[in-house]
Design a protein around this nucleic acid. Structure first.
Lengths: 143, 143
DNA sequence: CTACAAGCTCAAGCTAACTTGAGGTCAAGA
DNA sequence: TCTTGACCTCAAGTTAGCTTGAGCTTGTAG
């Protein structure tokens, strides 16, 4: 009753929406694994699709591939640093608040007809809200 | 008794936390503007700090510099496309939901001692939740 | 007045995350 | 048998977003 558990790279590409070259690239980086070869061709377990979905989410969340390699590798026996995860979760918290502020800012800007939004009090309030939380983030280096 | 309204690039760098080279780069891209020069040196109005804060938020939200150049330029007279803003806000909505799922996933993973989180039902539920929303690609108008 | 820190320009370099290209393998259908 | 088409490798190219380096200019403190 198990549906095709083994997929070739083209099938994974079709189902994940990622380019074949991207899949090979991810495998080389260690983000995903093929479960063997048939001749020269890579074979993948269907579970790789779940993992790729997780990677997409992570990318969207702003994680780098390297970070995800560390964070999302919940392999058997490999204990992933609990603090590290919590820390990442906290970073996401901040980010979510900021995104929410930006979203509200955009929605407001679409409706508000002030000449310059940078001077609109509502807009500034939203901005300030987001920045206040940001204060904790003193770092010399940008992304 | 207005405090120094005019800042030189070093001061902007100090107050914004961005490298001087980054500020010059942003100016070249048109993301910020200097209000003139003293000799060869750029001068900035204090308001550039607010704009830079907005840019930082936007970057965090995953906007590219080019996008922000279009979206965050609420200049006098320049009418920014209302649909475009709303569309961006909707994109952020989706992103916020995904980030929330990832955050919960991380928090769960930190506590759950299942051997493989990809197989943990709670984790999968969170993942599915995020992915389901992803399917809903509404909105007729693209960029 | 002269040293020098802080500016400046322009070109080149760097990292992440992929993509593209050249050239080769292999199973299957006409 | 011959031809496709999907796969392979490895190297080089691409884009975004900056940073670095070389070489030149200035305002100001000693």
């Amino acid at each position: 009753m198990t549906l095709p558990m083994i997929l070739d790279i083209g099938e994974v590409s079709r189902q994940s929406g990622l380019a074949v070259s991207t899949l090979r690239f991810y495998e080389e980086k260690g983000l995903i694994q093929s479960c063997g070869r048939r001749g020269m061709r890579r074979l993948f377990e269907a579970s790789v699709l779940l993992r790729l979905a997780l990677i997409s989410l992570g990318k969207n969340a702003g994680f780098s591939l390297d970070e995800m390699d560390e964070i999302f590798t919940f392999q058997d026996g490999v204990q992933i640093d609990r603090d590290r995860l919590m820390n990442k979760a906290d970073e996401l918290d901040l980010k979510i608040r900021q995104l929410t502020a930006v979203r509200e800012g955009l929605r407001h800007a679409a409706d508000c007809s002030a000449p310059s939004h940078l001077e609109c009090p509502t807009f500034q309030r939203l901005l300030d809200g987001a920045l206040k939380k940001n204060k904790v983030k003193r770092k010399t280096k940008g992304v």
